[in-house]
């Protein structure tokens, strides 16, 4: 357990010290800002009967950040260490493979959540300017953040796996993005399977990230996406551990 915390601290230290992570957060802030501005312009002077977050998730900017940030954050985790050779120093210290993978996953997830901090900043700014009947309610905001964290868990774990498979950061990012976008696009099959009753329609509905997010932004926390995301994350992290371990028996 102790090596895990030492490594989490080290990874977070890397994120805190690297210029690239500030650029990532600033880019996320810019994209989310664009999304909010477009919303404010569209709804200025009009009535809304849903909290602003509920409308916001529907914009492309929200998904852009959700899909792009994890590969950018995770691509370095293993690929960079392999490329520079520090992976060898790390793995010959008395630490378990699982501790290393979990620590890297945890740190990346924490940083991913930091990337979403601008959302709160944007909400704060909006609240500042609309003091009366402000279109925000903290509970749906909390469930939205929960959804962002759950989806992020899956995507960060996917990025970890991609990064563990290769020593090229670019390749890791491309791989994670390709897999992630594919998973996201499954949501759009929802329209074509519609209200079908066979098992494939049920699977599509079960893995449809759009539907999950729809629920979360409305303040509805369903146990199904909860279980889906947590189990998928655990499965991906487990695969990553096995990939890292495979060096010792391949």
């Amino acid at each position: 357990m102790r090596p895990y915390f030492i490594l989490v601290r080290r990874e977070l230290g890397w994120y805190a010290g690297a210029l690239s992570s500030y650029v990532t957060v600033a880019a996320a802030q810019f994209l989310l800002g664009l999304g909010f501005i477009s919303l404010l312009e569209a709804f200025n002077g009009e009535a809304l009967n849903a909290p602003l977050t509920e409308v916001f998730y529907d914009t492309m900017y929200f998904w852009l950040v959700l899909l792009l940030a994890p590969p950018v954050i995770t691509m370095r985790l293993f690929a960079q260490e392999r490329a520079t050779g520090t992976f060898e120093t790390l793995m010959t210290a008395p630490v378990g493979d699982a501790a290393v993978v979990l620590a890297k996953f945890t740190a990346a997830l924490v940083f991913y959540l930091v990337t979403w901090a601008p959302l709160l900043l944007c909400l704060g700014v909006v609240r500042q300017y609309i003091p009366e009947h402000h279109p925000l309610e903290w509970r749906p905001v909390a469930s939205t953040l929960l959804g962002i964290a759950l989806l992020g868990g899956v995507y960060v774990a996917l990025g970890c796996l991609a990064s563990a498979l290769t020593r090229s950061q670019i390749l890791a990012a491309v791989l994670a993005l390709a897999l992630g976008v594919t998973l996201f696009l499954v949501s759009f099959l929802r329209a074509s399977v519609g209200a079908g009753t066979d098992w494939s329609a049920a699977v599509v509905r079960h893995v449809s990230l759009l539907s999950h997010m729809e629920d979360f932004v409305r303040g509805v926390v369903d146990t199904r996406p909860l279980v889906f995301h947590l189990s998928l994350t655990a499965w991906l992290v487990f695969l990553t551990v096995k990939v890292v371990e495979s060096r010792r028996w391949k």
């Binding site: 890397w14 050779g85 060898e88 120093t89 010959t92």
Partner: peptide, 11 residues
């Protein structure tokens, strides 16, 4: 153990 090329964290 000091590996070949002595990899270190430059940051």
């Amino acid at each position: 153990y000091m590996p070949e090329n002595n990899p270190l964290y430059p940051d």
